[in-house]
Amino acid sequence: MEHEVFTWASLFPFLKHLPPHVSNGIIVSVILLIIVFLGYRQLKKKEDEVVPEPNFSFKNFVEMIVEGISNLVVDSMGPRGKEFILLVGTLALFILFNNLSGLVPGFLPATDNVNTTFACSITVFVMTHYYGFKEHGIKYLKHFTGPFWWLAPLMVPIELIGHFARPLSLGLRLFGNITGDHLVTAIFFGLVPLLVPLPVMFLGLFVAFVQTFVFVLLSMAYFSGAISHEEH
């Protein structure tokens, strides 16, 4: 007997008719917003406390996330990285929580749809060139012309193609990995629902973290390439 597949989105009347990647993206974003809002209020309330709390609390959890992300950004981009913490952190949290939501039954992760991943990667693409122009002004175009001016007709198309390949590869990699992982988990669940999907789900946990990390690290590399002053 065929019955309707349960999704968490079907519990909300206004999300029911949206495509699954949109509705699940909205749910994950709302969960993230609640975490951020609660964390912000707690941080504000106890700002004057110097001694950390003895046991692991929600405040510690939020602090750990924020500090982890800002350390990661400053580590790999240098002191200039502070300008990018907001953008990179937003992308990291959104992608990580969406990837992890794929492991919860009833959720279809938003990142296993090309639209979501390309939305993220095109954001990175546009912001890269925005920061490039902001840093260098009109001289940013010199990044595309290569070492000599007479090589420009050859180098400009090559550079353009190289720059277009970046967001495409970013989005395609995230989409492919999450879709593949979700599919494998689903197939194993269909074959033997008891205990057999566990190793695959553990692999899914690993993939979720690694793919977030890859996305964030590569976008940081692109950002630092756009604002760097050396010839390349």
């Binding site: 790999s76 193609i161 190289g162 277009f164 390949a165 970046r166 495409l168 590869s169 395609l172 990699r173 990390f213 890859v214 690290l217 590569l218 590399a221």
Partner: peptide, 20 residues
């Protein structure tokens, strides 16, 4: 980190030719 750099090479190379 370098693992990520090297693993992204293959995809980016293939996509460059395709985009061209």
């Amino acid at each position: 980190k370098s693992l990520i750099d090297y693993s992204s090479l293959g995809l980016e190379m293939g996509l460059s030719v395709a985009i061209g």
